[in-house]
Design a protein around this nucleic acid. Structure first.
Lengths: 340, 340
DNA sequence: TTGAAAGCGATACCAC
DNA sequence: GTGGTATCGCTTTCAA
């Protein structure tokens, strides 16, 4: 059995409360050096480690954050998690990680579980999560931060990237290469990110006076096969696009596959730009031109913000908006007339 | 404030202990239906959820597992974590995730932290971890399972793949393609996995009566740049190898880059086999021939085993050995004489 | 400068 | 069939 504070107290010949004060460096404690030494010695001799469960019960704080993500094998998340974990650890918090597999029922179950386990706050990285989640969190008054998603229901409390801007940068890049037949394989359009990237696409076409061609906008999803299917469709059009702005890198990868199956060369016949700059993006051939999103920072800032919220610190801004940056690699090139 | 068991008891006009028995479905409880109903109603009306921290203190069990991994952004781990998380969740356990960045000090700090937080057991996925970790765990009597690593200091308690066998399969594949100049970019040789793969390489050369050429064995490491450097060296040899068995997929990727920089074609001029079949492996060009390791299963089985250990269930075998399987893709091809 | 005791929210043993 | 009460390990207020 591990030693308790009582054991330490007995060994040092003092009361447990005194031991507690010494451990927690109670500022309004004046104690004789000799007594303190006895306590410290006893702690060392017994290899005493305070029981965090008991502390949590007493202090009503577990120093633990719950993080809910849809799928850890999606290459978007590991960097985000790592950032969150670092920020949490630096502030003495641990991370409890929950994977929902995009299943709303699991999400709800985890929410309840984490609430019962009395985590001090929630990091929600699930783009699909129904607003009932946000509602639940708000009603219960639990501190939370949305990661890479925002909500109309709530003032701030999120760390996001400016997707309208990022999509604009992507489309600008293609336009500057001379492309006018620019298609967009959109993400899921009931998510903020999906919607905003579409908006950025349309706004930039507009700005550039490129007419919006409805056939060039196809709603896909965020997975590779969504990109594959959508691209097959686009490339089957009578007048196919010469460039595709994909909702994310996975989608761009699917587009790459579809193009190569049809014997098209990238970027010779088709330029493709992705979104997020997932680690995979630079490994594939051709390496993906994409919008680099600071994934690590996103996680870090979210966890930092959350711990501040928890500790009641004043936060200037509880809505952090990060900017994406264009990274030009090999999947985009100048537009040129096609043989047909 | 959330309702407590006392609130429920008052509202139902019973004693807290009775509420507890109803909640936990105490088998040796006989209770009037009417009383039970009153309690259940009170629970619903107050939206009562038991405080897991208080339960944990009383029951001396947190139903939480600590999982320590070196680097979540290494594509090896997300699948493993996902498997572990699933198995844990199915058994009512949560996962506390800790990222050490390969830093032994962080590892120790996390070990202490998790111990203070009274996790019920440890999942250790750190190949580099010093044996002091295993020693610590053993001395304290904490249940633990090593993932993808074993230890001489301990009888079983691990889920590993048979790396000697896997490496053998990889080298066999190359030999069957007619290669005789087969090099090995080894991993870190003070890890079990690094050592075993080297052993498999040597045993198979032996079996095939291919003489072992010391210059063809270069110790690298497990990172991409290790593979890059080692391969540059191998390809600079007077008589360079025609095939490389890499310690893992990341190393194989580095080899790929080195080869293409030198104008060599894969598999035309050089065949490369990786290890693990990380998600990345099938995405790169040429797609990697590799040894598929059941990453998800590894995590799943480890967590399952650990929960059994924790709950005192009899486990037939506390050392689970999985087999890798050859996946032939595009990075390997028949040997042929080179121009020089 | 230190001690005593209440209480955090549950469970479980022992009564009756 | 249900209640009383001690207890898990720690913190904190109030006393002395």
């Amino acid at each position: 059995m591990a030693a308790t504070i009582k054991d330490v107290a007995e060994r040092a010949g003092v009361n447990p409360s005194t031991v507690s004060r010494v451990i927690n460096e109670d500022p309004k404690l004046s104690i004789r050096d000799e007594t303190r030494k006895r306590i410290l010695d006893a702690i060392r001799e017994l290899d005493y480690h305070p029981n965090a469960v008991a502390r949590s019960l007493r202090l009503r704080s577990t120093r633990t954050l719950g993080m809910i993500i849809p799928d850890i094998t999606n290459p978007f998340f590991p960097e985000v998690i790592k950032g969150a974990e670092s920020a949490a650890a630096e502030r003495g918090f641990s991370l409890m990680l929950c994977n929902t597999d995009e299943d709303p029922e699991k999400e709800k179950a985890y929410l309840d579980l984490l609430a019962e386990k009395k985590v001090d706050g929630f990091l929600m990285a699930t783009a699909f999560s129904h607003d009932s989640t946000v509602k639940f969190l708000k009603e219960k008054g639990y501190p939370f931060i949305l990661v890479n998603r925002s909500s109309r229901d709530v003032s701030g409390r999120c760390v996001v990237v400016d997707d309208v801007d990022g999509a604009g940068v992507a489309v600008d890049h293609l336009a500057e290469l001379g492309h006018t037949r620019i298609a967009h394989v959109a993400g899921v359009l009931f998510t903020e990110t999906g919607l905003s990237r579409l908006e950025g696409y349309r706004l930039t076409l507009n700005k550039r006076r490129i007419p919006f061609e409805p056939d060039y906008m196809v709603e896909g999803g965020f997975r590779e096969k969504d990109g594959y299917r959508a691209t097959r469709r686009l490339l089957g059009l009578p007048v196919p696009p010469t460039a595709i702005f994909a909702a994310n890198d996975l989608v761009a990868l699917g587009a790459l596959t579809a193009a190569s199956e049809l014997g098209l060369r990238v970027p010779g016949d088709l330029s493709i730009v992705g979104y997020n700059d997932v680690p995979l993006a630079e490994k594939v051939t051709p390496a993906l031109t994409t919008i680099h999103v600071p994934l690590y920072d996103m996680g870090y800032l979210a966890a930092e913000l959350l711990t501040k919220l928890i500790q009641g610190e004043e936060v200037a801004e509880d809505r952090v908006v990060l900017k994406g940056e264009l990274v030009v690699r090999q999947s985009t090139g100048p537009a040129r007339e096609r043989a047909g």
